[in-house]
C-alpha cells in the first residue's frame, strides 16, 4: 500500500459533501430497508381501510369532496411527518450521544453545517420518495382527483426539512432520550391532529386555528389537498410561498442550535 504524498488534494465542494452525508444515511437506512419502511407505507393504508370501511360512510362528504378524498393528503403527510420527526429526534440523538457517528464525520472535511444540512436534505428526499407509494395506491383506489397530485412528493420534501429542523431544536433541549416524549407527544402529535388532517381547520376554535395555520404543517396539507382534489383556493400562492420558503430559515436555526452539542 502506498500513501501518495501529494499536497494538491482539493477540498470536496459543498455539493459533494452534502451528497456524501445523504449517501451515508441512505446506505445505513437501506441495510434494513424492509424493516424501516414497513410502518411508513403500511400505517396510512391500515388507517385508511379502517376509516374507509367504517367512518367514511357515516360522514359522507366534507368541503364538497367525499371524506376519503378529503383524508388523502393528511394521511400521506402524517406518515411523512412521523418518520422524519423520529429520524431527527431519536435518530439524531443516537448518532450524537450513543454511536458518535458525527464525531467520525467531523474529522473529515465535513463541518457541522454539512452534516446537518445533509441530514435535512436526506430526510426531505426520503419523505418525497415514501410519499409516492401511498400516492400511487390512493390513485389506483380512485381517491386522487387531479393530475396536479404528482407535485405532492415535492411538498413532502419541503415539509420534511421544516419538521426535521424541529427535531434538531429538540436535540438541543433534551437532557435524556425520554424527554423526546415532550417533542413527539407535545408538539408533533397536536400539530398533526389540528392541521386539517381529519377535519377542516375551521371546525376548531378560531385562536387555535389561527396558530395552526401558521405552523409548518397546515400549509403543506392544505397545498397537498389542492393538488390531490384540484380545488385550488384563493390562498394558493401564499401557501405555496410559505411551504417553499419556511424550511430554509428553520433549517438554519436548527443547525445553529445543534452546533454546540457537537463542538465543545
Amino acid at each position: 500500500m502506498e500513501i501518495s504524498q501529494s499536497t494538491s488534494k482539493p477540498v470536496p465542494s459543498t455539493f459533494r459533501r452534502l451528497m456524501a452525508v445523504c449517501y451515508r444515511h441512505m446506505t445505513t437506512y437501506n441495510r434494513n430497508f424492509f424493516t424501516n419502511s414497513f410502518g411508513v407505507v403500511l400505517e396510512p393504508l391500515i388507517f385508511f381501510m379502517a376509516v374507509g370501511w367504517g367512518l367514511a360512510s357515516a360522514i359522507g362528504s366534507i368541503d364538497g369532496v367525499p371524506y376519503l378524498v378529503f383524508l388523502v393528503p393528511g394521511q400521506i403527510m402524517t406518515s411523512v411527518v412521523y418518520s422524519v420527526a423520529f429520524e431527527t429526534s431519536y435518530g439524531t440523538y443516537f448518532r450524537l450521544e450513543m454511536d458518535h457517528n458525527y464525531d467520525s464525520m467531523m474529522v473529515t472535511p465535513l463541518g457541522v453545517s454539512d452534516i446537518f444540512w445533509g441530514e435535512l436534505l436526506y430526510v426531505g428526499v426520503r419523505a418525497a420518495f415514501f410519499s409516492t407509494i401511498p400516492l400511487v395506491i390512493f390513485g389506483v383506489w380512485g381517491l386522487i382527483l387531479s393530475p396536479w397530485a404528482v407535485l405532492v412528493p415535492l411538498v413532502c420534501f419541503f415539509t420534511a426539512i421544516a419538521i426535521g429542523s424541529l427535531g434538531l431544536f429538540a436535540n438541543r433541549l433534551v437532557k435524556s432520550l425520554n424527554q423526546f416524549n415532550f417533542f413527539v407527544s407535545g408538539l408533533i402529535a397536536p400539530l398533526l391532529f389540528f392541521s386539517g388532517t381529519l377535519f377542516p381547520i375551521d371546525k376548531i376554535p378560531k385562536a387555535v386555528a389561527f396558530v395552526m395555520a401558521w405552523m409548518p404543517l397546515y400549509p403543506s396539507i392544505n397545498l397537498c389537498r389542492m393538488l390531490t382534489t384540484g380545488h385550488f383556493q384563493p390562498e394558493l400562492w401564499v401557501t405555496l410561498v410559505y411551504v417553499v420558503l419556511v424550511p430554509w430559515p428553520l433549517g438554519y436555526l436548527g443547525v445553529k442550535c445543534i452546533r454546540p452539542k457537537l463542538i465543545k
Binding site: T7, K9, P10, V11, P12, S13, R16, R17, M19, A20, V21, Y23, R24, T27, T28, R31, N32, D99, H100, N101, D103, S104, M105, V107, T108, P109, L110
Partner: peptide, 30 residues
C-alpha cells in the same frame, strides 16, 4: 482534508459492512 484521525472510540457505522463503511467515509473526502 490532509490528515487522518484514529479517535479513541471507533465510531463506525454499525449497521453496514466493512466495505460500506469505507465507501461512506471516502465520500466525505470527495
Amino acid at each position: 482534508n490532509r490528515i487522518g484521525v484514529v479517535a479513541q472510540t471507533d465510531n463506525l457505522d454499525e449497521q453496514v459492512s466493512v466495505i460500506q463503511n469505507l465507501e461512506i467515509y471516502a465520500g466525505y473526502f470527495g
